[in-house]
Design a protein around this nucleic acid. Structure first.
Lengths: 204, 204
DNA sequence: AACTCTAGGGAACGATCGTTCTCCGGTCAA
DNA sequence: TTGACCGGAGAACGATCGTTCCCTAGAGTT
């Protein structure tokens, strides 16, 4: 049974005294990939352990349980989302172009070959009915995006209603593209956004 | 343990020789309620059996397995969706009002106290990664809605792009209202739809 | 060399799942 | 009354899950 003695062939190959932060990251990254690809409940802890190249003991030393890993994954997803949106928005200086940058980000995201929708929407559908923690994480994520768009719209001097409308377009594009597999939903959302922005910023 | 002998207090109270079609309906209705409320994998066959007031033997005589029940539930959801949309649209004769009727239907749906989003989106997030049948059911449902809106938009003489945009708004309203719990998403979607329809039907 | 400590591999555990099987009471024909 | 049949209740089964525990190999210290 002990024929192979290589400790961790796919791991980061650190000797022994690994700092604990990197173990967490490794686990959360592997969990994110597996959960997103197949659904949370379809991934067992043993498979996650194997994918992350950690022992079960280490896994449970680092995380209180599977729930804690799920929440850590959602936190990571939120950070990635914020960074991606920020990058696409900050690329522009014009307020209108900033708003449209959101849909450019969506377009590049949808074109990813492993795209399977918004992880928060998926997690909410799967666990939101039984896990208040997951439902709240999804709520906070969506609300923070709404607040972000509210700010961009306010900078434009447009009414807050526009922000609500643009968020609906972004959400709809995510689910539509995820289910149909058609990445052009981002483009249609962007075109709609252009019309809505123009209508909301037109002089009275 | 046998203190209560009432066989099925909440069931339809049919004597014994129930016709088999109604058993199917009873099971699918109970499954729909439970699956929608808590997620599919969170509902066991035994709980479903109890909720439907049927025996396990009857359950497996009527359905090949849990997968078959899930697909039957999605078929039922699709029929309910089509009927609800049709009712709200057929209430009007003007093409523009017909399109806006979609969002009126959404508004009444979102106000339902057990509303928890689109069952197809939820099922796709939970099982779409592993069950091709579920993923396909979601795809077909969304596509049939797109085709339906395409028809209404074509009747208006507006470009097909408008139909894509309106579908995105409807999808976004569903997920947003589900997660945030705010039913006004339907109203914001409707207002955006009014702007988009006006822009798409304005004379050149 | 002997001892201590750590951590990894993986068996073990209890719970739960979807599914099947067994028993048994009731019903109807003869 | 007897016997055949049907369906319900729920035990049983095998698989899988999240989680814990045990055993041991190896590193470090004296």
């Amino acid at each position: 049974m002990n024929s192979h003695e290589i400790p961790s062939p796919s791991g980061p190959a650190a000797p022994t005294g690994e700092d604990t932060g990197s173990v967490r990251d490794t686990v959360v990254e592997a969990a994110d990939r597996l959960f997103y690809e197949r659904g949370i409940q379809q991934v067992g802890m043993d498979e996650l352990r194997a994918a992350a190249g950690v022992s079960l003991k280490r896994l449970y030393a680092e995380f209180e349980g599977k729930d804690a890993i799920v929440l850590a994954v959602l936190r990571r997803r939120h950070a990635m989302w914020v960074r991606g949106i920020d990058d696409a928005v900050d690329r522009h200086h014009d307020g209108r172009e900033k708003l449209l940058g959101i849909f450019d980000f969506l377009a590049t995201w949808f074109a990813t070959d492993d795209f399977r929708g918004c992880a928060f929407i998926n997690a909410f559908g799967e666990l939101g009915g039984t896990s208040e923690r997951v439902a709240q994480a999804a709520r906070e994520h969506k609300q923070s995006f709404q607040v972000y768009v509210d700010g961009l719209v306010a900078d434009l001097g447009a009414p807050e209603t526009l922000a609500r409308q643009l968020v609906l377009l972004a959400e709809g594009a995510q689910t539509t593209s995820a289910i149909t597999g058609d990445p052009t939903a981002a483009h249609h959302a962007r075109e709609a956004a252009e019309v809505l922005i123009s209508a909301a910023t037109a002089p009275a």
